[in-house]
Structures are given as structure tokens and as C-alpha cells.
């Protein structure tokens, strides 16, 4: 059986290529049908804000990649409710149907995966 991997993405979309590159790990794993989860933590939750305009900074829109996750077989999407609350986003409309988890549930989530990579 394949080992599962949880990728924890904790950077905002505007800090250079590393946010996109974290997402690419998930997309690449999904293409190989691996059991993957993606958790948005800390500033990573800013990736889920609707209405961002990448073109204003001459960048590619991350939204399309994020929304491609389920198509690539990455269906386990999670977001830290604490990170959302801290950043005033707890009631915001998010661009992905990520499951909101509190700290206790996040500890259990990490426990469930064979491997965890935090970027």
C-alpha cells in the first residue's frame, strides 16, 4: 500500500515561488494516485481568500492550481480554524471546500498520515 503524505502549506501566495512549489508537490503526488492531504496553516490560509488579483503583481493566479487539486486526486483539504480566526478570515468565503479543524483535531490529523512535509 502506498504511504500517505500530508503537505502543510504555511506561506501566503506572494512570497516568491515557494507557495506554488509546495502546491506542486501535492499535484505531482496526486498525478501518481498517492494518498495525499493538504493543510493550510498560518499565513497559508491567505491562499484561500477569494478575489485576489495576481495580475496586479504580474504573477500567475494560484487559484487555478488550487482548484485543480480535486481533479488531481488531492481531495483531503484542511484548514486551521485558529489560523483563519487569527487573520480575520473565520467567516470569509474560501475558494476551496477545506475542512476547518481546531488545534486538537490538527494534532490527530498529523498522526493519521505516514509522512508530513511543512513548507
Amino acid at each position: 500500500m502506498s504511504k500517505s503524505m500530508l503537505i502543510i502549506s504555511r506561506q501566503a501566495p506572494w512570497a516568491g515561488p515557494s507557495t506554488r512549489e509546495a502546491l506542486d508537490i501535492a499535484l505531482a503526488g496526486g498525478a501518481f494516485d498517492l494518498p495525499l492531504g493538504l493543510l493550510f496553516l498560518d499565513d497559508g490560509v491567505f491562499q484561500l481568500v477569494a478575489g485576489q488579483q495576481a495580475a496586479a503583481l504580474q504573477q500567475k493566479d494560484l487559484t487555478a492550481n488550487l482548484q485543480a487539486l480535486p481533479l488531481f486526486g488531492v481531495e483531503e483539504l484542511f484548514v486551521s480554524s485558529r489560523s483563519l480566526t487569527e487573520r480575520g478570515l473565520i467567516d470569509a468565503q474560501l475558494i476551496l471546500p477545506a475542512v476547518e479543524l481546531d488545534d486538537h483535531a490538527l494534532a490527530q490529523l498529523l498522526d493519521r498520515f505516514d509522512q508530513v512535509v511543512t513548507i
Binding site: K3, I25, A28, F32, L34, Q115, V117
Partner: peptide
């Protein structure tokens, strides 16, 4: 090579250490 090599390595190994 591509990112698939990272996943393949992680599958082959007992531990992935970053």
C-alpha cells in the same frame, strides 16, 4: 528530473527527512 522522483523516493524509503 521531476517532482515524481521525490514521491517515488518517499515511497521507497522508511523515512523522508527534509
Amino acid at each position: 528530473s521531476g517532482l515524481g522522483q521525490l514521491h517515488e523516493a518517499a515511497q521507497m524509503a522508511d523515512r523522508l527527512v527534509c
